[in-house]
């Protein structure tokens, strides 16, 4: 498991590194400021133009290993079909440059109401990936699972992760109150004895059963956007401790857990 943080402009690279955290992910728009990151995320709505602009060459030159396609705002089957066609068109380019591509679960929003949209749940995303890989003729597309997006939809998170199983190559750690996409620190919405929050313990246990190569990335820009500059270091230190806990805990569990039949 490789762990780190999604770069965001609310903290500096030095602050992140001083906390002992790797910059593992970046948004496509912020990628030049991140320096380098193994996992780069781009919105589905920007993908076509970015490819035309030569983004794939830029990313591979900068050492990106995985391109994540964010699907927030993808409303229905028709839009999903359009995305599928675009990805198939781009597939040779991804392959030539050695970029693994993962599709992220998202949500859609209309008039302030959040709903699943085309790829909001694990089952829909798994089916989409099945069609995509079939058309590509090989297993070249994987899944990026965003805990925060699933929480926002109030899904039973591990059930949706299980629907994707080993297809999950990237896990974004993010938390919220089930109302707003806050991109906050894991555990900060956890209430003891309540199921109305992300069940981090279950998530951690399931992640332990996934292949070791998974990227686990803190997608917590909301923490840094909403806290004063003086406290960013303290929140980074706390997140560093969370990552350390995940690293040591998954190692322990990988040793002690029975081998699970992961889809």
């Amino acid at each position: 498991m490789r762990t780190g943080l999604q770069y965001n402009i609310h903290v500096t690279k030095n602050e992140i590194r001083n906390a002992g955290i790797d910059i593992l992910g970046a948004e496509y728009e912020e990628y030049p400021f991140a320096g380098s990151a193994a996992v780069v995320r781009i919105s589905h709505s920007r993908l076509e133009q970015a490819v035309l602009d030569g983004a794939l060459d830029d990313l591979s030159l900068c050492g990106a290993e995985v391109l994540v396609i964010e699907t927030i705002g993808l409303k229905d089957a028709r839009e999903a079909e359009d995305l599928l066609k675009l990805l198939i068109r781009c597939a040779p380019g991804f392959k030539d440059r050695g970029l693994a591509v993962c599709i992220e679960n998202g949500y859609a929003e209309e008039a302030g109401k959040i709903y699943r949209g085309a790829l909001g749940d694990g089952t829909a995303l798994a089916a989409f990936l099945g069609s995509l890989n079939e058309k590509a003729g090989e297993e070249m597309f994987g899944a990026a699972f965003n805990v925060g997006c699933a929480r926002l939809l109030r899904l039973q998170i591990t059930e949706h992760m299980k629907a994707l199983g080993k297809k999950i190559r990237v896990l974004y750690l993010s938390d919220n109150d089930g109302r707003y996409d806050l991109r906050q620190m894991p555990y900060t919405f956890t209430t003891v004895h309540s199921t109305n929050c992300a069940q981090w313990e279950e998530i951690l246990e399931y992640v332990s059963s996934l292949p070791e190569e998974i990227f686990v990335i803190g997608d917590i820009r909301g923490t840094f956007a909403s806290s004063p500059a003086e406290l960013k270091g303290s929140f980074l230190d706390l997140f560093a401790a969370v990552l350390e806990e995940w690293n040591s805990s998954t190692k322990d569990r990988q040793i002690t857990l029975p081998i699970e039949d992961v889809k």
Binding site: L182, Q184, S226, P228
Partner: peptide
């Protein structure tokens, strides 16, 4: 913990 219930652009309550 303070500051953990708002997000980007101070969204949240």
């Amino acid at each position: 913990i303070p500051f953990t219930f708002r997000g980007i652009g101070q969204t949240g309550n």
